[in-house]
Design a protein around this nucleic acid. Sequence first.
DNA 1: CTGAAAGCGCTTACAG
DNA 2: CTGAAAGCGCTTACAG
Lengths: 341, 341
Amino acid sequence: MIEPSSGDRSVTLKDLARRLGLHPSTVSRVLHSGEESARGAASTGTAERVREMAARLGYSRDPQAMGLRTGRTQLLGVIVPRLSDLVLATMFEGMEEAAAEADHSIFVMNSRDDLVLQRQKAEIMIARRVDGLILGDAHLDGTLLADLTERGVPFVLVNRRIPGYPSATCDDGLGGELVADHLWERGHRVVAVIAGEPYASTAIDRTQGFVDRWRELGGDLPPEAIVWSRFDTVGGRDAAEAILGDDRRHPTAIFAVNDFAAIGAMGALHSRGLAAGKDVAVVGFNDTSLAAHLPISLSSVRSPMLEIGRSAVRLMLGVLDGRAVESVRLAPTLSVRESSA
Amino acid sequence: MIEPSSGDRSVTLKDLARRLGLHPSTVSRVLHSGEESARGAASTGTAERVREMAARLGYSRDPQAMGLRTGRTQLLGVIVPRLSDLVLATMFEGMEEAAAEADHSIFVMNSRDDLVLQRQKAEIMIARRVDGLILGDAHLDGTLLADLTERGVPFVLVNRRIPGYPSATCDDGLGGELVADHLWERGHRVVAVIAGEPYASTAIDRTQGFVDRWRELGGDLPPEAIVWSRFDTVGGRDAAEAILGDDRRHPTAIFAVNDFAAIGAMGALHSRGLAAGKDVAVVGFNDTSLAAHLPISLSSVRSPMLEIGRSAVRLMLGVLDGRAVESVRLAPTLSVRESSA
DNA sequence: CTGAAAGCGCTTACAG
DNA sequence: CTGAAAGCGCTTACAG
């Protein structure tokens, strides 16, 4: 364990108390009681002296000891499919900020969207005594959430939602609608959807939002125009191959529910000598930092990822405080670029 | 704090001891002494009974209490510029694996390559009593490392190196050489380098490796052909604009020390009606999962990111054990694709 | 306004 | 082979 002070040993409450001729409990009250009760903790003079000494010696409270005593570690566990996914990495940055502001620290682990790993990581975090779990890899068909609920483990969801549990997500349905409106306006009538993984609410909601709106507009969209796929570049490429290989139908536009899948689709078009944006419009989702700067810039639905991350932490802290919390769904916007202009 | 057991309260050593008619210290010795000393910890029969009961009641050691007592939290702090960078995110996955195998947990924070934030995050981690720090954002001109050394904070570097400190990195110089050899063989004689940020060893070493080898081969490479830039897509685009805008020199190949910068450069080419791979060759670095699947697939130097992450944890554990450790430099390979075929 | 005690869950010499 | 004690650093009713 690293000693926070510059000396050889960490400064403790006892050290402070000895130097001040006070009892450790008094020092503790001055330094660590909440704002309200701090007033009655000690005389103004004493409090002043304590704070001065603490600053001078570089006192820093030991979180292990505090956790042991209070039963609250101020540790939040975050589980995501993979941090190398720009979307989750960005949400994580938001969580980190919000947690730091509330004096909490965050533990994050990857589950690779694997149900076994997901459970394993959750157990590791629980063994570490995190106060609660923020799950970014909720599967619509999983049983983890029910089990956690039964065990009384506090948690909230981020990025993906499951009805009945508190979550912070993008309004994915609305995002799908925006894309439908846009493509319809641009005159497209034969379209296809690269729909993502059917166990993720993001995939379901974005696809559903698009489809519902498309039909509302009077558009036709047969089931075979919707292709489920992995969320990555390879998944998008494969799905696009399937779509373009169908000779009965030649879509003039493709909506991929994820930027990486969209990039894969652009690759498939390129392989067939088709130009994204000219021959076939492509729209992605998330507006990752890449989208605007691709050789052919990608139209994409921008979801407020940082803010979603921050909201997830707020929800979590609310749950831990025993408050009733409401799920948050943040509105996305559409950035139109060369790929669908 | 979440209670690990399914009951309302966590099972403690004391609980186990009471049920077994033993003293908690005996239970502790059986369950937690190292393999060697465990033999003498209790009679075979007792040990058996203890382990059985622990399993039955779902005992899980409290890390806070253990940390408080032993002074080792089994917590490692990791600081990276940004987790949304695929490179660091992937190295982090390697670190996570290696740490889990050694029963350690990892804390990770973003510093955005900002020297102030870097210090701030380090302090937060130290205040959390991590056993050591793994730094992925070392600046060649920073003073943090010297300060940490003086304070006796154990740390190692990952991804970027600084002479004199233990680090786990790619052999970036060799990577640059591979690119020089490749472009020379393909007949290019007028080339340019998008060199990255001059405070990062990755940028320096990759550029230096390329330049040295290029001159060794008899190539010419004036200083103005080397453009320093940010590591992201926008940085690469801007740098490429500068390179292509120079009328005295028309490079037939561009080496970008980072895939994202390379993608930005491809965008700049596209804007000028030039095709990457046909009109101007482009080579990136890191071979991120995107590279192979871009519309025009990108040649890139593949660095063993997962393994670099794992090595960093091994180094860290070595340092914590008081062993003398050697820096690790892992060899990269070149993947040639359409952009420079 | 301040002190003294008890205890969170664990480990580790020290006895026997 | 097992027990008993002490203590890691903190907080929190309870006195006074």
